[in-house]
Design a protein around this nucleic acid. Structure first.
Lengths: 333, 333
DNA sequence: CTGTTAGCGCGTTCAG
DNA sequence: CTGAACGCGCTAACAG
């Protein structure tokens, strides 16, 4: 591999000059520049990024920690992050935290020790205090899907209460009055916020939230099917089920179909997240969006702007869910 | 940040000694070692991996290039790769090729310039020659989902012909004789192999492959729905549809359900890949597995073994699909 | 505008 | 077993 030295010899200039044309931060005369460029081309020179990092104390790498790499969320998110960052010639180092405090801390440590210039974190198990502590350090961090008031400029999040309200409000607008709710696990902030939005919508319509028609799921498909089986076993009357995630909605709908309950004729459903898959199955799922991909992109732009001082876009931290009306919910007779 | 120098001063030893205890490759007396360890602990010393890389000419990073980060495949694959590699304290740098030759080459270039010790590639657009060329270079590469005879020790792949055979053989065992086929795009090797397996199964049962009942899809949901609509419009008789991917099967089944065609009572379906989602919807999809996660893990182990000389596991390169019988295909009357 | 000269933090000879 | 010295490839003052 050719080095900067080889180039400088071939071009008949000094090391520093070669460095300058690479980073073009200092003026270099056009003809020296051309000589250098030619030399680089004929040697097939590729800068050694490791050496650059060591010398400049900037690794050009961004650590991304997510709870899991599989599932419908992080793929789209990573896609956007990778695209945005790579076009700026930064690279992304990934780590998974698996929603476990130990592993999340471990992941952060790992990325830190890798000399990342910034961290993009989508963590859930770790405490606010831990994150605030991290925030005080030298490595900038951005939080996705999390809101901490005292560091809100570093947070990119979805207005979950609003989304929860939106979903239920739509169901109510269809004339439903007896509504079951399958929530996420209550120890998660977003699950609580969505439920709260649901309750607000109900009370705005003069309806009571009935805890008996509430099942605490886990955001996954089987949480939805468990919930549905439970609700059905209650023998209580309801015409619609609001689910706090598309995955749960899919699991719940599957249980209905298996039991000969028609969707949406007998029971209406609405999900949350707008993941791709349920758009393609029958009935197509009505839902509220969780623009996790855009949030990923925004996090990348935040880093580009705050850490690398490029990209003069204005990043907005708060994202609004949107309603996607499809076929799983219908007006009640 | 404390450096090796700070440690050496505090411990009252030389730089070299500190380096030795870190890499414990040379004998160091127990008591000097302890002094160093204590010094490191009290300084909270963390080695600078960038400097280590530069000095040792080994970046401890592995580049992973996949066609896309989203979708149901790469998540699980990345999960396994990340887990295996991180526990060995290696880090993974990701890039996406988007099934485009230009972008795939670009991605390889990018990862190379990042000083990766090895590359794990899941590429489809790039030519065999390009990969062979790369193989001749100094950076070891592993290919996932691709077989090139002259570098087969570096290939990790699924026996797609066999899987294609397996799926159709099962459908045939259920008594079906009029079978439609929705394939992947023919420019992809795995699509061709799966189709070939399908045809072999047919001919083993004395059946002819009917090109009229074949639709060339794209492995995606809408490819399946397009295909199903096309097949239905033919007004030809068939009792089963073999799909070359679960996503296509899901799209196809959705079209049937919309049109009041019952699955599997009227038409049986079998998919390919065994992605998570269709296991949770109704009817649960019968399919053949594509253990992409295990292949990812194997790739990681291959790297650990061949590049870092650790992990004395035997990596096997060829993976066999397995049949997963669920509810979307039934015996014909 | 360009060349010289120090480092960046660590691994690795080579003597002792 | 330990220390001194050099070098990895590049950036960043500092002179000219």
């Amino acid at each position: 591999m050719a080095t900067i030295y080889d180039v400088s010899v071939l071009a008949g200039v000094s090391l520093a000059t070669v460095s300058r044309v690479m980073n073009n931060n200092t003026k270099v005369s056009d003809k020296t520049r051309q000589k250098v460029l030619d030399a680089m081309a004929s040697l097939g020179y590729r800068p050694n990024t490791i050496a650059q990092s060591l010398a400049s104390n900037c690794s050009n790498s961004i650590g991304v920690l997510v709870s899991q790499l599989d599932g419908p969320f992080y793929g789209p998110m990573m896609t956007e992050i990778e695209t945005a960052l790579r076009s700026a010639n930064k690279h992304v180092i990934i780590a998974a935290g698996h929603a476990d405090e130990e592993q999340e801390k471990d992941g952060v440590d790992f990325l830190m020790s890798r000399g990342c210039d910034a961290l993009i974190l989508d963590v859930e198990a770790v405490s606010d205090e831990f994150l605030l502590q991290l925030h005080k350090g030298n490595t900038p961090i951005v939080l996705i899907n999390r809101y901490i008031d005292s560091m809100k400029e570093n947070c990119i999040f979805l207005e979950n209460e609003r989304g929860g309200h939106m979903a239920t409000d739509y169901i109510l607008s269809l004339g439903h009055k007896d509504i079951a709710y399958i929530s996420g696990p209550m120890y998660k902030r977003d699950a609580r916020d969505r439920l709260q939005g649901h309750q607000r919508a109900l009370s705005e319509h003069g309806l009571m939230f009935d805890p008996a028609l509430w099942f605490e799921g886990n955001f996954r498909e089987f949480g939805g099917s468990d919930g549905m089986r439970h609700l059905l076993s209650l023998k209580k009357h309801f015409t619609a089920v609001v689910c706090a995630s598309d995955q749960m909605a899919s699991g719940a709908i599957a249980v209905c179909l298996e039991q000969g309950i028609r969707v949406p004729e007998d029971i209406s459903f609405i999900g949350y997240d707008n993941i791709p898959f349920p758009q393609y199955i029958s009935p197509k799922l009505t839902t509220v969006s969780n623009p996790i991909n855009e949030m990923g992109k925004m996090a990348a732009l935040w880093v580009l702007q705050h850490v690398y001082k490029s990209e003069k876009v204005d990043v907005n931290c708060s994202f609004s869910p949107e309603l996607f009306v499809r076929d799983s919910a219908k007006r009640i007779k």
